[in-house]
Amino acid sequence: MPYPDKLLADDEEVVRHLHPHWTTLFWPVVRALVVVGAGSYLAALVPPGPQQGSLRLLLLAVALVALAVLVGGPVLRWRTTHHVLTTHRLLSREGVRSRRGRDVALSRVTDVSFRQTLRQRLIRSGTLTVESVGDGGPLVLERVPDVEGTAGLLHHLIEEDEERRAWEPDTVAGGHDESPYSTRRY
């Protein structure tokens, strides 16, 4: 079962699944181009002779290590960072070697705010801060694509969650089914 479906309750649905904004990958791509260009240039400078093959293999090995560290690491961090809005909660997971995660029930959210610099406004990115009841402190999600729309969607989901919980039989005093579709009278 793919992520995040394996984390969902039976009546829970994914509304939006986000990774950090694509601009997070800008510098790793630049580094990849520099490493490949520099490696190719240096490989062309290796003088012909019996050591040429060995020196080029050494350059290739150095370039592959540089690519793994300078490009592979940031790309893996981007790929393994998930922010998932569902009908019941906000899930955040990040990390490659060690994972960090946090789930915030929509019913526990007390405030949603976002912040954007001028540059972030131009590329439609920003920082989303979600305050909730509890000890965990605010959940700060950085480089969220369409942060303003995501904040609005989160507000909408919180309102829908409040309405849904108001009509659930378990949340009504006395345990009676008070849904508008109920035919029982008390």
Rank of each mutant, 00 (worst) to 15 (best):
A68Y: 07
T80H: 13
V35L: 07
V75M: 09
G37A: 15
S92I: 01
A44P: 02
A68M: 10
L42R: 07
V62Q: 01
A38W: 03
H82G: 04
L59Q: 05
H82Y: 10
G49Y: 08
R102I: 09
A68G: 14
L91Q: 11
R56W: 03
R77T: 14
R100Y: 05
V62Y: 02
S92N: 11
G49S: 08
T81C: 06
V29W: 08
L58Q: 06
A38I: 10
L33Y: 03
L33C: 10
R89Y: 04
V84M: 06
W27L: 15
V62E: 06
R31T: 11
H88G: 06
R93E: 11
P50E: 12
A44S: 15
Q51N: 13
R100W: 04
L67V: 09
G49I: 12
D103E: 15
L91A: 11
L45P: 04
V29E: 00
R79S: 14
L85Q: 14
H83F: 13
R56K: 15
V34K: 02
R99F: 05
L59C: 04
R79M: 15
P48F: 11
D103V: 15
H82V: 02
F26Q: 01
V29C: 08
A38R: 00
P50G: 04
L57M: 13
A66G: 07
A68E: 03
L55S: 03
A32G: 13
R77E: 15
H83Q: 08
P50D: 08
T87R: 08
L60A: 14
P50L: 03
V96R: 06
L33I: 13
A44Q: 14
T86F: 01
L57G: 05
L64Y: 01
A63I: 00
T86A: 02
F26N: 00
R93V: 14
T86K: 02
G49T: 07
V96I: 15
H82T: 02
D103W: 08
G37M: 10
L42W: 12
V29Q: 01
S40E: 09
L33P: 00
L33F: 10
P28F: 04
F26K: 03
L55K: 03
L76Q: 07
S54A: 14
L45E: 12
V84H: 04
G101R: 10
A63V: 02
G49D: 09
L58A: 15
V84R: 03
R31H: 09
E94N: 07
A68W: 12
R102W: 03
D103L: 08
